[in-house]
């Protein structure tokens, strides 16, 4: 796959998906750095599928299951103590939907 430069719009979209507000000058800097990062670290994309698919026998990712048991948890007071804003034993979440 030929390397294509990352556009400002793509950086903006990724930042939006990642919930990161970036200043205008930051956006330009990230475009350059992200382009260099992903562009530089793309060498494995030149490997053919036959080179990388022949990996039978390697320790493949596997899921880990735990029994679904009721157990003690953190507790409300502990869960809330690090929150910036709480009220009546609840987290205060800024408005999600308008009236």
């Amino acid at each position: 796959m030929a390397w294509m430069s990352i556009s400002i719009e793509e950086v903006l979209e990724a930042a939006k998906l990642a919930r990161l507000e970036l200043a205008e000058d930051e956006l330009v800097q990230f475009q350059g750095e992200l382009d260099a990062l992903l562009g530089h670290f793309r060498d494995f994309q030149n490997l053919s599928d036959t080179e990388v698919l022949d990996a039978l026998g390697a320790e493949l990712p596997f899921n880990v299951w735990a029994p679904d048991l009721v157990a003690s948890s953190l507790g409300q007071a502990f869960a809330l103590r690090n929150a910036p804003r709480t009220r009546a034993g609840l987290f205060i979440v800024p408005t999600v939907l308008e009236d």
Binding site: E21, A83, R85, V93, P94, T95
Partner: peptide, 23 residues
């Protein structure tokens, strides 16, 4: 996200608050 732990930078709504905090 600045809601459950850590510091928070307030925005106009939930998404803006999270994005401002992280940014």
């Amino acid at each position: 996200d600045g809601i459950r732990f850590g510091r928070q930078v307030e925005g106009t709504d939930h998404v803006a608050t999270v994005a401002k905090t992280r940014g």
